[in-house]
């Protein structure tokens, strides 16, 4: 039996080939990240979707809304992460109406974790959750492959993230302004896109603040410059 087709533990019993996809499955070979600043949070992602070596979509939207000001960055299997985001979206809507108050970001993170952990054997999903609420301000949670949950001040994920650990460590600062945070995310993602073969296309961002959610987009032929509107 070829373990590459099962998604199970490989022969050494330890290493799992989580990059492996079923025949024809769409992969988000990806660069995603989110970072907090004073008064909110920024999510960012590249826009490349691949099937093998073919770019299935060059303007993909990997930033997905699950509540008014709670969003997530998806990496891994597109099908899996879309399904998870749909389920969380449903639960957060239900939460909002049954409890007559919007869910906090950590509630969304808990729901994501529950789904990712309980179904870890059948999923290929690395998700970053970012949200803003009045009480807690901007928050970032990361859920890597095994289904653990980590509250962080910024998080990076996807195949492209391996190239920007150093960049982020050197450039991230506490108490960013909104503008500084956008520049930080943009700088990090353009590096990831530069070095990672399966990341590319435009840089999409979502800024979550007390004002609500605002989208930004930056184009490669403009060298990712401009204000993103």
């Amino acid at each position: 039996m070829n373990s590459r087709h099962t998604g199970n533990l490989s022969v050494d019993g330890v290493h799992v080939d989580m990059e492996h996809l079923k025949k024809g499955e769409v992969n988000l070979g990806t660069s995603i990240m989110a970072a907090i600043f004073d008064g909110g949070v920024v999510l960012g992602a590249d826009s490349r979707t691949t099937t093998g070596s073919y770019i299935a979509n060059r303007v993909t939207d990997k930033l997905t809304q699950v509540h008014d000001t709670i969003w997530c960055c998806r990496s891994g299997s597109a099908a899996d992460t879309q399904a998870i985001a749909d389920i969380v979206h449903y639960h957060l809507q239900m939460y909002n109406v049954t409890n007559a108050e919007p869910p906090a970001t950590r509630i969304a993170a808990a729901l994501f974790q529950e789904l990712c952990y309980d179904n870890k054997d059948n999923l290929s999903a690395g998700i970053i959750i970012a949200g803003y609420d009045k009480r807690h301000g901007g928050e970032v949670y990361s859920i890597p492959l095994g289904g653990s949950l980590h509250k962080q001040r910024y998080a990076i994920g996807g195949s492209g993230s391996t190239y920007i650990y150093g960049y982020c460590d050197a450039n991230w600062k506490e108490n960013f302004t909104e503008g500084e945070c956008v520049e930080f995310v943009k700088g990090a993602l353009s590096e990831a896109i530069k070095w990672d073969g399966s990341s590319g296309g435009v840089i999409r961002m979502v800024v979550l603040t007390g004002r609500g959610a605002e989208r930004k987009i930056f184009f490669p032929d403009e060298n990712y410059a401009g204000d993103g509107k």
Binding site: Y95, R106, A110, Q113, E114
Partner: peptide, 14 residues
Amino acid sequence: KFYHTPIPVSSLAD
């Protein structure tokens, strides 16, 4: 278990 947070009092009453 579901939300990883304590239940709000109003929700419990509900």
